[in-house]
Computed example of a mutant assay.
Amino acid sequence: MALSVVTSDLTRLALDAIVNAANPALLGGGGVDGAIHRAAGPALLEACRALPQVAPGVRCPTGDARITPAFLLPARHVIHTVGPVWKGGHHGEAELLAQCYRSSIALAARYAVRTIAFPAISCGVYGYPAEQAARVAIASLRDVLTLHAAMEVQLCCFDERMAAIWQEALNQA
């Protein structure tokens, strides 16, 4: 199992898969989601629209994951997962966030993904504190990767400040 922190633009990574911190509709948005949709081109939006809704306006419930081709991105696949909105930490946020990582890895394994990169899920507009999110992410990834030891996982941070937070959590795990 290889788990590392990188500072990079997620949309520039040439891996088997990158993970999108999506919203439940999977129709694009701001932050990481918007950047991935812009870089992948309009075919990504069409592929997301083709995914069935499981409830009105919901193609991917919080904690779940869906996969599409990556189109114009250098990655082969985009795995879309919906993280929890931070509500103070007493509404199951940690379990839902952990489920995002577990669901994404399980889906990646079904598609023979060997290299994958995750953004800091829920740490943007969803407001999850980065230090807490990093601990949850790393613990859940270490746990699930025992079943997928050959998979290489990068925790992709857009800037040095966030990378330092995630590296510290990885060092302490």
Rank of each mutant, 00 (worst) to 15 (best):
T115A: 06
D16V: 02
W86E: 08
I67G: 00
G57T: 10
R161L: 11
R161G: 13
L107C: 04
A137N: 06
P129F: 12
P119S: 04
V85N: 03
R76H: 13
I121Y: 06
G88M: 11
Q154A: 13
L44K: 00
A40S: 11
A163V: 06
P24Q: 07
L107Y: 07
L96Q: 15
I138D: 05
A137Y: 05
Q132W: 01
G127W: 06
A164S: 13
D9N: 14
C123H: 01
T68Y: 09
A120M: 12
P61H: 12
T81L: 12
G57V: 08
P119L: 12
E95W: 01
L147Y: 08
L73R: 04
P56C: 12
A163N: 09
A75V: 11
A14E: 08
A75I: 10
V136E: 00
Y101C: 04
R135A: 13
C100D: 03
R49F: 03
A40K: 02
A75E: 11
A164R: 13
I79F: 11
Q132E: 15
V136P: 00
D64R: 14
E168Y: 00
L73I: 11
C60I: 04
E131R: 14
W86L: 09
V19N: 06
Q53R: 14
A117Y: 12
L97N: 03
A106R: 15
V136Y: 03
F71G: 06
A22K: 08
L15R: 00
L97M: 05
R12T: 15
C157F: 02
P52G: 05
V136K: 00
G28E: 08
A14N: 12
L155N: 05
C48A: 08
A55G: 04
A17G: 02
Q53C: 13
L147R: 15
V5F: 07
A43Y: 02
